[in-house]
Design a protein around this nucleic acid. Sequence first.
DNA 1: ATGAAACATGAATCAATATTCATGTTTGAG
DNA 2: CTCAAACATGAATATTGATTCATGTTTCAT
Lengths: 201, 201
Amino acid sequence: MEYIKQQPKTKRGEETLRKICEAAEQLFAEKGYYATEVADITRRAGISSGTFYIYFPDKLSSFRYLMDELGHELRKEIRAAKEELPSNSMIELEALGMRKFFRFVSEHIGLFAIVWQSQFVDPESFKKYYERFSSGYINEIQEAQKRGEIRPLNPAYLSYCLMGIYNFVALKSLVFDGKEPSDEELEQILSFIRRGLLEKP
Amino acid sequence: MEYIKQQPKTKRGEETLRKICEAAEQLFAEKGYYATEVADITRRAGISSGTFYIYFPDKLSSFRYLMDELGHELRKEIRAAKEELPSNSMIELEALGMRKFFRFVSEHIGLFAIVWQSQFVDPESFKKYYERFSSGYINEIQEAQKRGEIRPLNPAYLSYCLMGIYNFVALKSLVFDGKEPSDEELEQILSFIRRGLLEKP
DNA sequence: ATGAAACATGAATCAATATTCATGTTTGAG
DNA sequence: CTCAAACATGAATATTGATTCATGTTTCAT
């Protein structure tokens, strides 16, 4: 990883890095990047402040590292889930991806917070994050369009429509209301998307 | 306004406050709240740093003030546009509101940036901002549902779907690509929404 | 025209906090 | 078992940047 100073070489080191990341993820989510002091992170991790700098060259790097890690994990989980599905109907894949997304975000509310903030903490990473997601979508959408499954709308914009829906629904349910959307609610959102997307609903 | 220390009482004062707000809006959008120093704002406004504190008790208040102002203006413009429309079909209103939204945001890219950041600068205002928008939508949606115009999906979630779409499409076009979406593109997005929403597309 | 209120100045203050570093302890390969 | 590399400590440093305030200038109602 490029944002990390030193890959731990012992069990103890690994454990310490893990504790730092866990604390940082929580704190960035709770208080935001700027309001979180390095001292907060090390306090919650149960280590001294200097130790932070053994692993990260500075505070910003830890933020970038987390963003990379979490985004990676999320994409991996979604990809894995989709590969298990025998069907390759875009809408079925999408339903699965959506469920995974909500599950992951509710378990890692830090990801959500971190990405949201990154537009100003580190604009480069922010753009990269969404464009990476978008380009995955674009492929799927184009394939499905070739098969005549979904309507011939601009794939790039469609991908942002989908991401927008998921992100804002997650905002409402997980952040504002503090609960996961029910299956019933997810089904309704999916139904909205299905009709919008499909050639013959 | 509750975030302002002193309403200007002379022409000069008014002009100064205006310059401060303009500079702050630009800078919060360009560099973000935390990276913007009060000195940056006063420098761009062409005044001395102490003057800032004649109008605002502190930096955070200026942020809240802008967020309130801009959100208010945006809602007012959308409302005004919608009132001019004779039809009260939800979809036609929505098409108009969407166009207004993109126009406003492209002229006030600061609003977008400010709201996006507020989740961590001032979470209270953040939630208030979106819930205010949402509740306006909920009314419209419920009316349209009574008329049988749109499908009986959960109005609160639908409102967040719509806001998500607009926000993310604006993110892609205005922030990432630096250009307004074309009429053709807006039409496609609207078509996606129309099919998702309408009882009989 | 005039003076009290409004407005403007910018150097000085002061608190907050990211980062360093000299010193000590622990780990694990050989 | 041993010791070099890894890891940990936390007080001290250094910088940054919000806010204050004593002093001056401008406005405008009368």
